[in-house]
Structure formats: structure tokens, C-alpha cells
Design a protein around this nucleic acid. Structure first.
Lengths: 353, 353
DNA sequence: AACGGGAGTGTCTACGTTTACATTGGGGCA
DNA sequence: TGCCCCAATGTAAACGTAGACACTCCCGTT
């Protein structure tokens, strides 16, 4: 027995029958109204309204070979990616497209799974934030689906990308610290397998070199972009014989963690340690102290990616590469270094909860 | 001319032809393997692999009257809702269902639009976080789609709901402040049209009454759940002739804003003003100071909602109501009131950027 | 030897659309 | 008056799949 949608029995056939017309006419009234006599169109619209008819999108999709959906794949559900998602959502909201969300969870198998959703016809294209594609695709054996990458490039494949200049952004952040007078500037880097994190690290190194400050390996710590990893890294930095007076973090969340760690040790930001983040998430402005950070246009990244993908699906040609500018936003987590040596720490006991 | 999916020409027919079998056999190999001789099944699987065949989900969906997708509708993209989304995602990830995201943006028209996506067959059911349904549905004229609401009830309709006890949570928060010795306790409420915000307000009032503290209208401010509205509300409270020594906020974001406002005025948290939030978003633990707040099991709310909806779609019967417990998490943003009167404010000038 | 039944597979229709192609009728023009 | 063409509509064939039903063996039973 055929299982039927309980909700909407009204089909195009019902509408046609109600009016004594053919289904073709009804179909045209909906998709290409200019082909019909205005009066006929009216009558159809009336009946559609009266019967509560809604076209079955799966039937339409099957017929046209289009799902009218876009799949957004992020490596996790952190606010940063979700703010990009919000940008994409703003675009699809006014379009015929639905937005599917996929969380790859850093797992390559998942990405493969999402790619197959395309060949299965669940979506027409992918907005990919993970910078990795399953083997078969990356190697070019299997044809890539309509795809646009955000922030990360897909190695070994020519795919349009919407991103920002992490290298320049990082340099600007470090230069800001140098200009404030800092010399012992640490970096809490992101995971080495994330290309954009590498670029930020390189920007850090380059800016230090340009300022004539020798790079010190002990001042480079690594986290996994989470607040707790940022806090842990900061703890290690504070435990150095000669701790840094400033820290540049590879993203905002690690910066929050770093600030928490500083405060927990009885020191303060920016008096004892200046902290700079990267991303300028919504919260940065309201963190305590408000975070100096490199603004990444998250919303715009999402918008552009969605727009480019839709254009691509419509057969219009799209830019190979869109680079959006970053911008250093100076708030209250950075200041000139003070004479006081942060090495002499723990002014008052850490308060327990 | 028929527009074809460029990516996957291989259909069930191709597989059948390759093996000299009928399409039915191939179909069965995939959906009901136990009906086939093991050897046949093997051969089919082989060919499927070889040809890179993936079933067309729209054709399957059309045939079966199922989209195998769930639509998640939230009023906005704030972290709070997205953390609930993450919970739902964890469930659908291991299921046959895809997760569609819809942002109603507080707009009733959008909600209507999403309801129609169901009758259009884009999804099989809805997880609704907005507490409002389009007129026709709410009034019972049109049949409700498979639906589960989260946190908010749908007025005038019997729909399963997964939520928490806002009333009890708010009471616990206020009781905590009372026990610390506070008497002048303010509340930064949420929008009056959001039922859960009303419940929190009621919890606040009830707890105050229970403690024998008379309620004062001037101590109740209203925000719209954003950080900036929380900051603005706090500014108004601090401007009172007799400012509060503690503030209970209807959500975490307004609490962050409130703390920022306090600090901006040269006062500190919790020494001058204690602040309590509601939700326990991921960030609360790493805010500065770490925020005392009422933990709402966001992830679990999402999990349960998705699970119940999937059960419902499978024809299993589901609970009318699931109530998950809240729990007060005491961190460092609350402390006993000090002798110092916060009225004498602005100890040092606000720093400009 | 005849029959029943079940395992395994094939045939073919329906799901709800869109659209290529066919048909109709009427108006403009010679 | 006859013809052509175009506007408006109808007919019917796909799109790719699932499953109802039909068929063919073969084995076990009588």
C-alpha cells in the first residue's frame, strides 16, 4: 500500500479537475504565467487558493533535476561558523533555495557523505568550510559537484573560493602590538592542519621579523580554537621564566580563554598582558574587557558564498576568488606594556567558586 | 529540453541493465536485501559500486511520500538557539534525515512559509522554537504538520513540547541572591511577547515575595535579549537614586551586556553589583567574570526534540510533554553585597578607545 | 503423478510535475 | 474567400523509484 502524505491531498490534478482544465494549464499558471490569458490565470489562482494547493517540490525537483537546496557544510557548530551560516541564510531566505546544514565534525567520512547527498539529489550545490574533500573528488576522479569553498582552499582542485587575507590580518594585529611598544609578543596558534591558522602564524612571524623582533619558539603555543585550549596555552605562557607582555591569538575564542587565564592568575588585561584575537565575533565588543581583534566579515563571507553558488547554479559565471578585507578593531584588551613585570604574578589568591 | 543533473547519470535502470536483471531486483537489493538470494545481492552491490550509483532521493521521496528531512525553525540565529540546533543535529546526523534550517526572524509570515514547506514535501516535520504558528493552523482550520515545539507552547493546539521550567529556574536564581544577602534585586526581563520570558519574570516576582522583599516597579527593566539591550537596561538601573545591588537577567546575553555596563561605569562585578544570567551558554564559563547562571540543557533539548519528532514520524507514540530540569550554576559574578554603596559611582573615568 | 506453496525474480503502474508536441480557433492580410 | 500564423490550451511522455501483482521454478507432500 502506498503511504501518502496525510497533509496535502490536493494535487495539480485536483485543481485542473475543479476547473475543467488540463494539468498543463494549471502548471503554466504557476510557473510561466505570461503564457496564459489573464482571466485563465486568475481562475487558476483562485482555485489554488481555495483548495490550498501547494506544488509538490519533490515531484518538481525530480522532473527538473533540481533540488532547489543548498548544503552548508561546516567543521563544527562554533559561533564563528554559524555567523557565516547566518550570512548564507540571509541570501537563501529570499530565494527559492532551502538551506541544509551539515556538520562534518572534522571527519572526512562525513564530508564524503555530504558530497553524496548531492549526487543523490538532496541538494544542488555545497558551501564548504572545511577545506577538505573526499579522496575521489580531490584527486579529480569523480566530478566535483557545484561547490564553493569559504576561507579554506581545496587543494588540488580549481574551485571558487570566498575568503579573507589571514596573512595580512595577522600582520596588522602584531604590528599594532609592536607599535604599542611590546617586544615579547606570544602567539597562540590554531591547529596545524588548518591552512588559515598557518597563514596567521606566518603573518605573526613576518610582522615580528619586520619589526626586528627575533622570533622565539617558546612564545608560540598551539590550541584547538576552543576557549579552554586558549586558557591552557596562556597558562603555559605565564609559567615561562620570562612571560610575554602581549599575546596574539589565532581566534577570538582562544583569546577569551587567554584573558580568563590571565585574570585567574590575579593579573589583568591589558595592564599586565595585552591580548588580541582574530574574527571579531559578535561577542568581542561585549567581552570584558572588550576585545581588540581582527574583524573577519563573517556575514559577508556567507552572503557572498551563497550568492556565488546560486549564480553558479544558474549558469552565470562566477569569480574564481573573492577576497574580503580584514580590519583591525582596537578595543580595550590592548595597551602599552607597563614597567611592572608580569613574571611576579599572583597578586591576590585565585578565588574559588 | 530536459535539464539533467550533470553529476550522476547512473540510475537504477543502468544498474539493472548492466546485470541483465530487472529494476525491481536492484531496488530490493538496496531497500530489502533479505528478499534476495545472497549471491544476487552481492552482484548488485558490486555493480552499484562500480557504476557509482546513488539512489535519487527525490524520486524515492516522491514515491514514498517522504522527504526524509526535518525543518528546524528558530526565531533568530543567536548562540542559544544554535546550541539547541546542535543537539538536534547530533541526532539527525546518525539517521536517514537531513536537517533544514529556517530562520523566522520573528516574522509570522516566515513561519507560515516554513509550514508550507511541509505541505510542499520539502520536509516531513518541524521542530519549532518560536511559539507561534500561522493563523490557519493555530486556529485548527488547517491540519498541523508533524510538529514538536521547544521551550514555547503553541497556544490553542495540542502539540508535543520539550521544555524546561523557567518559573522554577528563575526562582532558584533569585533565591540565591536573597541568600547572599541581597534585598535590592533588579530584573532585566525579556520581551513581553515571549511566554518563557514572562515565566521568568513571574519566577522573579514569586521568589521576591517568598523572601518578604517587596517588589518595586522601578527595578524591572526590559530588553530584547541582546547584549546591547542588557547594557542599556543596566545603565538605567545604575542611574536610579538607589541602584540595585544585584540583577537577575532573563538570558545570558543581557547579563553580559549588564556586566559590561557596570564595568564601564567604573564599578565591578560582583563587588558592587551581582549579576545572574539564564541559559548557561557555552561562553558563560569563560566570561570575565565567569557568569552565575541558570543552566538550560540546550543540547539535550535539541536532542530530545529531534528524537521525539523522528519517533512521531515513524508512527511511534511520543510524550505530550517533556520537562528537563534547570540547575543553578554558581560562578563568580555573584557575591554578598558590600557596605559600599554603588550609588557613589564612577570611581575612575571610563576609558575611551 | 499431481498438487500446493514458497522462494526468487520480472512486469508494470503510480507518485506529481514539467514540457515537447499536437490541436484548436480566430484575426490579419492578400 | 482563403491562407497563415500565433495565441491559448490540451495530450501525453518522461523524471527515477517502490511495490503490487504475476510468474516460474523447485521441493515436499499426498
Amino acid at each position: 500500500m502506498t503511504r501518502r502524505k496525510r497533509s496535502n491531498p490536493a494535487t495539480i490534478k485536483d485543481v485542473a479537475h475543479e476547473l475543467g482544465m488540463s494539468v498543463a494549464t494549471v502548471s503554466r499558471a504557476l510557473s510561466r504565467p505570461q503564457l496564459l490569458r489573464p482571466e485563465t490565470r486568475e481562475r487558476v489562482m483562485d482555485a489554488v487558493e481555495r483548495l490550498g494547493y501547494r506544488p509538490n517540490l519533490m515531484a518538481r525537483g525530480l522532473r527538473q533535476g533540481l533540488a532547489n537546496a543548498i548544503l552548508f557544510v561546516a567543521p563544527n557548530l562554533s559561533p564563528f561558523f554559524l555567523e557565516i551560516f547566518a550570512g548564507a541564510e540571509a541570501v537563501t531566505r529570499d530565494s527559492q533555495f532551502s538551506l541544509l546544514f551539515g556538520n562534518s565534525n572534522g571527519d572526512l567520512g562525513s564530508v564524503q557523505h555530504f558530497f553524496e547527498q548531492i549526487t543523490s539529489g538532496k541538494a544542488d550545490g555545497i558551501i564548504l568550510l572545511t577545506g577538505v574533500a573526499p579522496d575521489g573528488y580531490a584527486a579529480g576522479e569523480r566530478q566535483l559537484p557545484p561547490l564553493i569553498t569559504v576561507l579554506e582552499r581545496l587543494p588540488g582542485a580549481v574551485v571558487p573560493v570566498v575568503h579573507t587575507d589571514h596573512f595580512a590580518g595577522a600582520q596588522e594585529a602584531v604590528r599594532h602590538l609592536v607599535e604599542l611598544g611590546h617586544r615579547r609578543i606570544a602567539h597562540i596558534a590554531g591547529l596545524r592542519r588548518v591552512p588559515s591558522a598557518i597563514r596567521r602564524l606566518e603573518g605573526y612571524r613576518t610582522a615580528l621579523a619586520a619589526a626586528g623582533v627575533p622570533a622565539t619558539a617558546e612564545l608560540i603555543e598551539t590550541g584547538d580554537f576552543t576557549m579552554s585550549s586558549g586558557a591552557a596555552a596562556m597558562m603555559r605562557l605565564l609559567a615561562l621564566p620570562q612571560p610575554p607582555t602581549a599575546v596574539f591569538c589565532s581566534n577570538d575564542e582562544m583569546a577569551y580563554g587567554a584573558i580568563r587565564a590571565v585574570v585567574k592568575m590575579g593579573l589583568s588585561v591589558p595592564e599586565d598582558v595585552s591580548v588580541v584575537g582574530f574574527d571579531d565575533q559578535n561577542l568581542a565588543e561585549f567581552y570584558n574587557p572588550p576585545l581588540t581583534t581582527v574583524a573577519v566579515p563573517r556575514h559577508e563571507l556567507g552572503r557572498r558564498a551563497a550568492q556565488e553558488l546560486i549564480d553558479q547554479l544558474a549558469g552565470r559565471d562566477v569569480a574564481r576568488e573573492v577576497v574580503l578585507p580584514t580590519r583591525l578593531v582596537v578595543r580595550e584588551s590592548t595597551a602599552p606594556p607597563t614597567a611592572r613585570r608580569p613574571g611576579s604574578r599572583v597578586r591576590h589568591a585565585k578565588r574559588n567558586r
